[in-house]
Design a binder for these strands. Structure first.
Lengths: 215, 215
DNA sequence: CCCTCTGGTGAGTGATTACTTACTCACGGC
DNA sequence: GCCGTGAGTAAGTAATCACTCACCAGAGGG
């Protein structure tokens, strides 16, 4: 209490984590080239020199972020459950909701896009962990459902891409280009899922809930 | 013929156009922040000082590009024709082919993404001209077809987004993240169009070409 | 009381950046 | 023949960048 400011010396691990957290949001907002090491250090409340004590180069800090922020295991686990029950509508809704949910922060999407566009060497790994995991999982499920006779005969990988594409594109418009969502989150998800499962053309059967006069 | 090199003095208009062309591909490849004025000038074969004779700032050059490169009228005209004939499959195939065609260059997509991510002030206008035009056109067509009873009752804007989303996402994977196309260009387009029009779930009618036992 | 180890910094360094200034050169009209 | 005009440039400049170095402060152990 004798000094004017209470100097708090953080542990090595804490400081490193705080630098990564700060840098993540800055890199996501402005990209690798658009973010300076000074900005990161200042935002984290330390000197620039200290940043270089923990990460030898700016690229190393960026690489640490891409390597770390990549776990989608929570989503995959949640999906695994409904997949076993063969609840198609719920499974697709879950995937879409996870991305389009109201408070979903755009950090990871922006980081993914920036790393791809800027051609970072670790972009491939980041891409694999962020996107491919779920794409491949979905393709696997679709393949199974085709074999079971529940889905039409299509290329499972392309079908999975198509659905993920709807969702990712929606986020892109909303989070990058600030396009307003003119429908509620639930309506949007339901529309995409229904479109994907039952198609756009009429007269070939309706949604499960309505009359199915073709039976 | 007396000098060692024949100095060719281009006209103001030609030089400006050549600078814009050169800068476009560099900005698309590396982004606004990742491209230096010196690189642009050198690539265009002139001095850096001359660049600033034609464009007062680097941003002004970038703005000139975004303002200029935005015409999709050729596609809209081609679509207009099949739209009048109500040939759904062909219309959707046309839109998809235009983007997924073999030699399509990724310049505009990359420019669009970079400008959105980097938050350039003209990104909105560029986005409107590059993307919204076709999205709104497609939404209008879908709305008409719903009124005619040919398509199911869905939000036309969301449906249009969904289809464009499939296509844009496919390009993203292919052109930004270097994912290989494991199917031919035609097969891919056909799959997306069929998926979108008739859906994934089986037993509710088939593609037009096969039996339509629900009639 | 001193010694060492660790978290932390102020003040640089050379390279690169967007942009400027003061200039040259070629040519067409008078 | 000379003069104005427009294309073109070499050589800056101030700011900013990633990164470095020499140094400091305080805790803990002997």
């Amino acid at each position: 209490m004798k000094g004017k400011t209470r100097l708090i010396r953080a542990s090595s691990r804490d400081r490193q984590a705080s630098l990564i957290a700060t840098a993540t949001s800055l890199f996501a907002a402005r990209g690798f080239r658009g973010t300076t090491t000074k900005e990161i250090a200042t935002a984290a409340g330390v000197s620039e020199a200290l940043l270089f004590k923990y990460f030898p180069t700016k690229r190393a800090l960026y690489a640490a972020i891409l390597a770390e922020k990549a776990n989608l295991s929570a989503l995959v686990e949640a999906i695994d459950d409904v997949a076993r029950k063969r609840d198609d509508e719920r499974l697709f809704s879950l995937i879409a909701s996870y991305r389009i949910r109201p408070g979903a922060d755009p950090t990871m999407l922006r980081l993914l896009l920036f790393s791809g566009l800027e051609g970072h060497e670790l972009a491939d790994i980041f891409f694999s962990k962020q996107h491919r995991v779920i794409n491949d999982y979905l393709a696997g499920y679709i393949k199974t459902r085709i074999q079971e006779g529940a889905f039409r005969q299509v290329d499972p990988l392309l079908a999975a891409r198509a659905f993920i594409g709807m969702v990712v594109h929606h986020r892109l418009l909303h989070e990058i280009y600030r396009q307003p969502m003119h429908r509620s989150h639930e309506e949007t998800v339901a529309t995409y899922v229904e479109l994907f499962l039952t198609g756009l053309v009429k007269g070939k059967g309706r949604s499960r809930k309505e009359n199915a006069r073709c039976r």
